[in-house]
């Protein structure tokens, strides 16, 4: 099958899929405003990398790498990338679970999951801790160190003072 003069083959589809997922993930990480979407974009990019990894061991003429009875002489696909992908997927699960846990904590601390709002409040927070006046930090008390107890009341974005 050809499309726009380009022959569509299985490997073209697969590589486009893998690289496309990585690019979609990269774009999502930088463009998404909602923290949870950023975490999802990270998961998408990871899926692309895993697909690329498992493609690196494929052979046209081969079967799954499991020995069964007599036909063990048949060529098999490379088992090493499959083992690596298994590892990479589990690593991805661990990182994503931790990301979701952190996101819940962020929601508790800042009352929002909007990336730019978090970034602004973070800047103000650091500057406030250090006792420096910065432009655009109306809600950070100056002077002393505003370290509330860990179980402080969550600050909603609407409130202007703690």
């Amino acid at each position: 099958m050809t499309l726009f003069g380009l022959e569509i083959t299985l490997d073209l589809i697969l590589y486009t899929g893998a690289f496309g997922l990585i690019v979609i993930g990269a774009a999502g990480i930088v463009l998404a405003h909602h923290l949870f979407r950023v975490i999802l974009a990270l998961a998408i990019a990871e899926a692309g990398a895993n697909l690329l990894l498992v493609l690196s061991g494929y052979r046209w003429d081969a079967i799954a790498p499991i020995l069964s009875g007599s036909e063990s002489a048949a060529p098999m696909v490379d088992p090493v990338p499959q083992a690596m992908v298994l590892t990479a997927i589990v690593i991805g699960v661990g990182v994503q679970a931790l990301a979701v846990g952190l996101a819940m904590q962020v929601k508790k601390t800042y009352g929002t999951l909007d990336m730019s709002a978090i970034r602004q409040r973070l800047e103000a927070d650091i500057a406030g801790t250090a006792g420096i006046a910065t432009t655009g930090s109306q809600d950070a008390p100056l002077g002393e160190r505003p370290l509330p107890p860990a179980d402080a009341v969550p600050v909603t974005p609407g409130s202007s003072a703690r």
Binding site: L10, D11, L12, L14, Y15, A18, F19, L55, S56, G57, Y58, R59, W60, V77, D78, P79, V80
Partner: peptide
């Protein structure tokens, strides 16, 4: 780079 790969003919040294 992807289009340069020899898909389906993995070198499989270790494999």
């Amino acid at each position: 780079f992807g289009l340069q790969f020899d898909f389906g003919n993995a070198p499989m040294l270790v494999g």
